[in-house]
Write a protein that binds this DNA or RNA. Structure first.
Lengths: 376, 376
DNA sequence: TTGAAAGCGCTAACAT
DNA sequence: ATGTTAGCGCTTTCAA
């Protein structure tokens, strides 16, 4: 007796195909899976039977026995943020090319949602995970994965105590270069619009400076800001540093406060694209002569930066590449690479447009290291 | 003898937990799954054992037996398009609240990628699927799902011959209302920037008009455009209708052609957010007095519409709601609802800003049906 | 209240 | 070249 009869209901299974073709399940599997030895005409009849039945394989069952799902998970901090959307494109392209599917979960910048997403993906048996973590401080859930030797790659941000590959930009350097550029334009009172800073900004940044490679992006960019000012011998004014949450409204409000200062800044650096949008809006609403009286340097080179007026100068992050690189790291781990965790830093580019102009009679722009300064 | 010993390697399984707690697998499953009868102290000891071992359930194995994955698939046409990103947020929020996870695949507007995505998700045994289809003409892959009684909900676009729930906006009406609004402002030469029109625009639109509820969004919006012109007794000029592909560059080029016409339009309607971006750019570059000499009405109320100058009037689609509604439809089907396929139309809103002004001495704005006309 | 046992659909030895 | 068989980790009758 061969193959189980299997009650014909629900979707057809391999057993049904085997029966239909009059062969054993193993043979059917070989023909369908294109491995092992199958006689040409047997293969053909199996394929025909599969076709007739409208068979499609059950990859869940396959995963049960192989122990692999050919799926990687991506926990995005915010799917609606164009930076992460682009990042996701890089991940899915690379993964798909390698025969992996990507399951996407969204943490909405909330640590508890992130934990839940990580747990779910783990239960779903993803082969590995790329995570854009929401917080630096607590990575116990990620550490657990690493201990279980489930490959994890951190994206955009790192996490304390998690020995996993990470693909980042050098936030300190990116912000430092940005501020140096503004200083080079003659600005001396430079406002900083950042996030993630609970408590008094300066103190938080001072702490952060002690361990600059491991900190939130907002804090690290703040450290870069401070470094540039100090290096240039400029005074650091606490009131020029503002922290906002991840909403446009709060960024707008924070910028308005900045512009209302008695000695208001002549330039502002906003360290992510949401903050940048809010800052732009606030400056427009202020009635100041933009950019003559106030320069703005944003983060992330989004579509709208060239249709606003003035066009927006930005620190451009290689979002697609960050995603693609993270995916490549993960795939390497999945293929068994067993080197110590690597932290990769991708270069940012300063894109000079109209929103940053020289202050105090200086005319010339200024170019500086850290990637390229491009004009578009 | 009870439970299998199971070689202690890899992640701990239910059998390991059972062994550790000194109970059978069935009991351990009951305790962990919180069903059936388990004595309180037994439960506690199982939970403790699970905790000790760091057990986490294998939902793949569970799916094998239950036949359900508690997962729905979403095939997005373009994850980087803010419209679909927002849509996705609506889907995931609703799904998660109901205990479902969402697996996202991207078709990049390419039919073959869509087929592949649908096939993969099917093989992955998603319980149901939401699809933003790339083409109206060929829905055989979707029909196959429906035949297998795997619930499918179409989003944003419908597909010929696929009897599935669909959540759409009334594209004809949205465009008609938009054009009526422009006509009300005194415009008579109104350009249309659309997509999806292979071949001579007017003829394609004429065909489309025969079956307006079933067509691509671009074509349907074109039909609405025509309807408004005809209704107002205005001449339809083929050269005012331009079709562009899904890129900003092609939209810019198409708009430039429009503006170079001897009798150039005094207003332009762009029917999606990418086209809108390109159109905005082209108008800016044209040197025309915008909006005095040329009005622009876009689609999708994105973040940047309020920081460009002039601020952009748009037809706003309820993207989040579209996603949420589609997810609710799917969940209903998953819960066994068995009514005939429903097509739901959500209302758009005309958001009046600065980029649309009256032409030919008329001063007042004009308000019209189809959802609301809002000023923001 | 708990345990034994039978699979879910598939792959992978191991036979033949 | 093809078939038999033993599971993958879990849920779920059915007995006890």
């Amino acid at each position: 007796m061969r193959a189980r009869p299997a009650p014909r209901k629900g979707r057809p299974t391999l057993a049904n195909v085997a029966e239909e073709a009059g062969v054993s399940r193993a043979t059917a599997a070989r023909a369908l899976g294109d491995y092992g030895y199958v006689q040409e005409e047997t293969r053909a009849s199996v394929l025909a039977a599969a076709e007739r039945l409208g068979y499609s394989p059950n990859s869940i069952a396959r995963s049960m026995v192989t122990g692999r799902t050919n799926t990687i998970g991506f926990v995005s901090a915010d799917m609606e943020n164009p930076f992460f959307a682009r990042t996701m494109a890089g991940i899915t392209d690379v993964a798909r090319a390698a025969g992996y599917e990507v399951v996407i979960a969204n943490s909405q910048e909330k640590p508890d949602l992130e934990r839940r997403a990580v747990r779910t993906l783990h239960e779903r048996q993803v082969d590995g995970m790329i995570v854009a973590p929401t917080q630096y401080a607590d990575g116990s859930h990620l550490r657990r994965l690493v201990e279980r030797s489930i490959p994890v790659v951190l994206l955009d941000r790192s996490v304390r105590g998690v020995a996993a590959d990470a693909v980042l930009i050098d936030n300190v350097k990116a912000a430092r270069t940005a501020v140096e550029y503004l200083i080079g334009l003659g600005h001396e009172r430079i406002g900083l619009l950042t996030n993630d800073l609970e408590g008094p900004p300066l103190e938080r940044l001072a702490e952060t400076a002690l361990d600059p490679t491991h900190a939130s992006t907002g804090a690290s960019r703040g450290v870069g800001y401070l470094a540039a000012l100090r290096e240039a011998g400029l005074k650091v004014s606490p009131q020029l540093i503002r922290s906002a949450s991840y909403t446009r409204e709060s960024a707008t409000a924070a910028t308005k406060q900045l512009l209302r200062l008695r000695s208001r800044p002549t330039a502002v650096l906003a360290v992510d694209n949401v903050l940048t949008l809010g800052a732009f809006e606030a400056i427009q609403a202020s009635g100041l002569d933009f950019p003559r009286e106030i320069s703005l340097l944003g983060f992330d080179d989004l579509e709208w930066t060239t249709i606003v007026r003035p066009t927006l100068s930005v620190v451009a992050q290689p979002a697609y590449d960050i995603g693609a690189t993270a995916a490549r790291r993960l795939l390497a781990r999945l293929q068994g690479e067993d080197s110590p965790a690597q932290v990769l830093f991708l270069d940012t580019t300063l894109v000079e447009r109209e929103s940053t102009v020289s202050h105090g009679g200086r005319l010339d722009g200024f170019r500086r290291r850290s990637g390229t300064v491009a004009s578009r």
